[in-house]
Amino acid sequence: MDNLTPSDLFSPSKARQQRAQAQDWAHIDSWLSYKYAGRTVPTFERNEETLKVLRELSMANERADEERAVLERVEREALKELDEVEKNEDDERILSTLEASLTPEGEQALDALASTAVALNAPTADAQTMAHILIQHTMTAQNLTNQLAHIQTLQNYLDKQQSLLRTQLDELQTNPAFATPSNLARQTTEQTRQVKHLRAKIREHEDKLSSLQSSQSRSMTPGSQHIGSPEAISEMLEQQKALNALREKVERLEREVDEFAGLPADREAARKEVGKLEVKLDELRRRRDELFEGLVKR
């Protein structure tokens, strides 16, 4: 009940759970005190897992005690019934006569057979029955021996693990590298302050971003609000292709127009000028041919 928090006082379920755990711990403490019979109970960590294990162990121990008590009561009643059985004088006389008639070796054999039947708890002294019982006892003893060897191996492993854990615990408790920093409280306070400051900055930037998005939405025209959509981007690409084709066509026409640079603006004057140039071109071709023929004759 010492670990109740203020919030638990207003929670009936938590308070009820705490009371149940306190009662379980009181029962465990009483049971351990009884089992250690005045000796000091070893210290252990008190948590829910430990409580669960100890509760199961105490319940198993109580069941074992009850079973042992029932077995002892049955044995006492059986012995009492055997003591109350009336002795038959004829049986005693026959047994005395039989013992007197036996040789020392026969008497030893009879004693051995009777002792074996009693030790094996056999219903009769039949040799085959006692042989089966003896085999069964041998198998049981072998199984118990194997189980004891397994338990011993497990115990050795647990002892090694316990020693290793104690060494690690001592290392954690004594090594300065695992000690709590002296300025831990100051570091925690500083980090908490930085976290609060960063959270305030984040909220401030989020507000600014929301304001910018709102102002941008208001300033955008209805047509431009969907400018970033896939359809708008595809349309822009098509328009860009058409514009490039038109630009190439204009450049080709400009090159063709450049070939007629220097001609008069009047159509008839331009045609006369072109005629003169064609006559001059013919003269140049004829002159070329003549020069070529002169070179061939040489």
Rank of each mutant, 00 (worst) to 15 (best):
A127Q: 09
P264H: 12
L134Q: 13
D29C: 00
E259M: 03
T43F: 07
L71A: 14
I28S: 00
L263F: 15
V279L: 04
N183K: 12
E235H: 06
K87W: 05
L246N: 11
D90Q: 02
F10M: 09
I135D: 14
E278V: 02
L277P: 03
G262W: 05
E190Q: 15
S11Q: 13
E48A: 14
D24W: 04
Q21N: 13
W31G: 02
A179W: 09
N3M: 00
E105S: 05
A22W: 07
R68W: 06
K14H: 14
E238S: 13
G275F: 03
K249A: 08
E56M: 08
P264Q: 10
L110P: 03
N244H: 01
G223M: 10
V70N: 15
L212G: 06
E84C: 03
T138C: 00
L263T: 11
D65A: 09
S234N: 02
Y157V: 00
L169A: 13
A109T: 06
Q213T: 12
P123K: 05
G228F: 04
A127C: 04
Q142D: 15
D111V: 07
S96G: 07
L172S: 04
P12R: 07
E251I: 13
H197N: 15
H132S: 11
I233S: 10
N61A: 08
R166K: 03
Q23F: 02
M220F: 09
V118H: 14
E67F: 12
L32R: 04
A117Q: 14
L148T: 01
E99T: 03
D266T: 11
N88A: 05
Q17H: 01
S229H: 09
L79W: 05
S229K: 09
N47Y: 05
D65G: 04
Q225E: 05
M139K: 10
A125Y: 10
Y36G: 04
S33D: 12
D207E: 15
R285N: 06
H27Q: 08
Q213F: 07
H27K: 06
G106C: 01
L71K: 11
D91S: 03
A177C: 07
G262N: 14
F10H: 11
L158I: 09
R203G: 06
L113F: 01
N121I: 05
E92A: 04
R19F: 11
I202N: 10
G294W: 06
L113R: 13
S58Y: 08
S96D: 10
E49S: 11
L144V: 01
Y36V: 09
K276R: 14
L209V: 14
D159V: 06
K196T: 14
N244M: 05
P42W: 01
E107W: 04
D83V: 00
P222G: 10
T221E: 05
L148D: 06
L209W: 05
Q23V: 06
N183R: 06
H137M: 10
R218N: 05
W25T: 03
N88K: 07
L158Q: 11
A232V: 02
E231W: 00
R286C: 04
Q23A: 02
P181E: 00
Q21L: 12
L95I: 06
R271G: 08
K208I: 09
H205T: 11
S163Y: 01
D24S: 14
Q173R: 15
S96C: 02
A179C: 04
E290T: 12
S115F: 04
N183P: 02
V195C: 03
R252I: 09
E75N: 08
A15Y: 04
R288M: 07
I151D: 12
R298W: 01
S229M: 03
E66S: 08
T116Y: 09
